Amino acid sequence: MREREDRAPDRASGARLALVLRRWWEEAGSASGGARPTQQALAARLGIDQTTLSRYLNPKHPLNAPLRVVEALHAQLRAPAADLEPARALCRAALEESSRQRPAGGRSATGLVEQPGTTSGACAPTGADDTVRAGRYGAWGRLRSRRLLPALVASAVVLAFAAGIAVHALLAPGHGVPADGAPGAFRVTESPYEWPLLRMRKEDQYTRARALQHLLNAYGYYVRTDGFFGEETRDAVMDFQRKRHLVSDGKVGPDTWPELVRTVGPGSSGHMVLAVQELLDNVGQGGTVVSGRFSAVTADDLRFFQRTHHLPVTGRADPDTWLALLVRQRPPASAPAYQRSTGMPPSASA
C-alpha cells in the first residue's frame, strides 16, 4: 500500500489521503499482533455510518475525510506517529483543490448547489454546510435573514448579560481557589467535571483505583496496583492525607485528588506516567501503551484526548486533564486482562 502512495505523487490530494487512511486500516493490528477492526466497528467508534467510512477509504470516491476523522482514525488504528502531520496536510490540500475546481453555482461532491464564495467539502470548517444551504434560497433567504437580524441582536444582548453574571460568580471570593490565596491543592475553576470519589470497597474499581495506586506509589508508598481499594490502599491514603493536612478519612475525592496529581509530560517517567497511561488506555479512543515512559506516542494520545474534550491541547497531563481522564473512564466489557492473569487478590475475595 505504501508503494501505491509513492507511485501516485501527482494524484489529487483527496485520493492520496484515502490511500493513507486505507493503509492505516489494512495495517492495523499487524504490528501488535492484534485483530484489525472491521469497518463497521470502526465507524461505530468514530460516530459515522459504515458507508461514509468506506468512501473515506476509497481513493476513487470524491468524498474526503474531515480532519477530525483523520485524527480519530490515526488514534484508533494506532498508525505511525510520523504519518499524522502529512495526513493533516493532505486533508487541507484536498479542501483547497476542491475549492479551486468547483464551478460557481455548481454541485459539490455532496450534491448541494453552491453559490460563489461558499465552501463545503470534507475538510471545511464547521458551519460551511449551513452557508451552502442558506445560499440555495437566493433572495428569499437574504430577505428572511434581514428580518431575523433584530431578533438575533436581542438574543446576543441577553446572552452577553448572562455571561457577565457567570463570570462575576466565577471570580467571587471562595470560588475555585482559597479566598486568602494560600497555596495548596489545585482547584479546577471552570470545568464541567467533578472529581470522582473512591473509597475502600471489596469489588474491583478498575482503572480509577489502579491509577490511584500508581499515584500513591509515586509518593513512596508500596501499594499493589490491582484495582482493589483494600486496607493497604486506604492506610496509604490516610497517611498521605495526614501529611498534607487533609481530613484523614481514607476517601479520595475533591480535596485529595488535586494533591495527588502532578503535571507530567515528555521526559517524565515512573508511576505518575503509568497512572496517566492507564487512564488514557481506557477512555475509548484506542489503546495507549502503558510503559511508565512518557513517549511521543503518549503525548499524541493525550493531545487527541484534550482536543476531543475541549481542553488546551498541550500534550501534557495538567490537573484539568487528569480530572477529565478520571471522569471519562469506561468500565471493562469483561474481566480486565490483569484480573484474568493474576486472579482476584485474597483481600478482595473475603
Rank of each mutant, 00 (worst) to 15 (best):
L216Y: 05
P336W: 05
A337Q: 15
K251G: 07
Y56T: 00
R234K: 14
A211P: 04
R88S: 03
V158N: 01
A15P: 04
P62C: 04
Q205D: 10
P103Q: 07
G105Y: 06
H214M: 06
E232V: 05
A79R: 00
S248I: 00
Q213A: 01
L311M: 06
W24F: 07
V177Y: 08
P125M: 12
C91I: 01
D10C: 04
F161I: 11
R293F: 12
A109D: 14
A160S: 15
G230R: 02
L274K: 14
G141S: 14
T256W: 11
G34E: 09
F294G: 04
Y338K: 05
A28M: 03
R11Y: 11
P150I: 07
M238W: 08
A89K: 09
R147K: 11
T38A: 12
R36K: 10
E190K: 13
G141E: 04
P66I: 04
E85Q: 09
E3N: 12
Q213K: 02
A209N: 04
R316A: 12
L198I: 07
A82E: 14
M1R: 11
G343K: 07
L152H: 12
A348P: 10
W257P: 02
R68S: 09
R293Q: 14
D301Q: 11
R307C: 00
T126M: 04
P103N: 07
A44N: 08
L149Y: 14
R234M: 14
S32R: 14
A31G: 03
F304Y: 11
A337F: 13
V167L: 14
L90P: 00
Q277W: 03
R144A: 12
A299S: 14
A333G: 12
S99Q: 11
A104S: 13
G253C: 03
H214T: 01
R330Q: 15
D281W: 08
L53K: 01
G105M: 07
T119W: 08
H175D: 02
N217V: 05
W25R: 08
R78S: 10
V188N: 13
V157E: 12
Y221M: 02
A209T: 13
R36N: 05
S341E: 15
Y222K: 11
R147F: 15
R78C: 06
R4K: 13
T207P: 02
A41I: 03
T233A: 02
E203L: 09
G181T: 00
L171F: 08
A163Y: 09
G176W: 06
A162D: 05
G176P: 06
L311Y: 04
